[in-house]
Simulated assay, not measured.
Amino acid sequence: MSTGAGPRTVRELLFGLPMLSGELPGFEPDPDPDAATGAVPPTPFPLFLDWLGEAVAAGVREPHAMSLATVDADGCPDLRVVALRDATEAGWTFATHAASPKGRQLAGQPQAAIAFHWREQGRQIRARGPVLRADAATAARDYLDRLPGSRAASLVGHQSEVLDDPAALPRAFDAALARVTEQPETVDPLHALFTVQPLSVEFWQGVPGRGHVRLRYRAEHLGGPWTRERLWP
């Protein structure tokens, strides 16, 4: 670290950084019988749509970026950021290569946790539950909806494998892109769509200088009724 007037340790650097700065949106999850607004919906998806729409309107960068946590065969967690492809009452959908680490991990342990972090609004949404893989026809439609470069990258494959020769990557990508261009209906059979079906969804609203607001929706089983619970910060 610098030996000048600035921080000398990582801890000093971190403690000097602002948190939850600026004007943040409010969140009042407790129903008020005397108020026309303020009550939250009985299920989590409408609230997710509201928050997503507010994030888009507020100019949050890449609000569809979603952290995805899976578990390998040894029980060790893995984490990465993926793009949200769709969201419905049934859950949150993302795509991956079936032979990738996350694809293999989900095949062996079909459960996952996801999180959205919208820093500009001091908001987080977390969810977890079993994961369902879409059928081949649905995955194919998603694949063909992608830009040519994205389809070519999928056809290259080898995701997360060791790249011994960096020059092999542009050659493989150019060959895959040529194939996509010449055969636009080509579908990567290993392109997979997964949906995280939530059993727990938590909405977190940061509040500068005080305890944060946390609301959890919890279901005992898929399709079951939701319980809403306020949580301590």
Rank of each mutant, 00 (worst) to 15 (best):
D164H: 08
F15D: 14
P170A: 14
T3E: 12
D86C: 01
F45T: 00
E202T: 03
V180T: 00
G6K: 09
P33S: 02
R85N: 11
R230M: 14
V162D: 02
V187A: 05
A167F: 05
A36M: 11
L190T: 07
A99Y: 10
D188T: 05
H212G: 12
A58C: 13
A83S: 14
V131L: 10
A115H: 02
F15Y: 07
F173W: 01
P77Y: 01
M1A: 15
A39W: 01
L169K: 08
H191N: 11
P148G: 11
S154Y: 02
A134W: 11
A139F: 03
Q183T: 01
P170N: 05
R128M: 09
L14Y: 04
P25Q: 14
R80G: 09
V207M: 08
S67I: 06
D74G: 12
L169M: 11
P208M: 15
T43C: 14
L47P: 13
T195F: 07
Y217S: 09
A137F: 10
A176G: 04
S2T: 13
D145G: 15
G53M: 08
F94M: 13
E185T: 05
L222P: 06
L52A: 06
D32H: 07
A219E: 03
R210P: 01
W118S: 11
T186G: 08
F45V: 11
L222I: 15
R216F: 07
E28V: 14
P189V: 06
R61H: 14
A152T: 02
P7V: 03
G223E: 08
T227S: 00
P46R: 11
R80S: 06
A139W: 03
V82C: 10
G108I: 01
R210G: 11
M19H: 06
P225H: 00
R228H: 07
E23F: 10
E62K: 07
Q109G: 08
G4E: 07
P225F: 10
Q124I: 08
L14P: 07
T70Q: 04
R126Y: 03
L24T: 02
A99F: 05
D78W: 15
A127C: 04
S160F: 01
F203H: 04
V201W: 05
L52D: 04
V71H: 00
Q197D: 09
A136D: 14
D30C: 12
E161N: 11
Q124S: 11
L169Q: 12
E229W: 06
A73H: 08
L68S: 00
E120H: 09
M1Q: 03
G53H: 13
G211Y: 05
A134G: 06
R80E: 12
A134Q: 00
V81G: 09
S160R: 03
A99G: 12
E12K: 07
F45N: 00
P148K: 14
P41N: 09
G122P: 09
G209C: 13
G75T: 02
T3S: 15
Q159E: 14
V71F: 03
L147M: 00
L215S: 01
Q109P: 03
F194I: 06
A115Q: 07
A115S: 04
P33M: 09
P184K: 03
R179P: 06
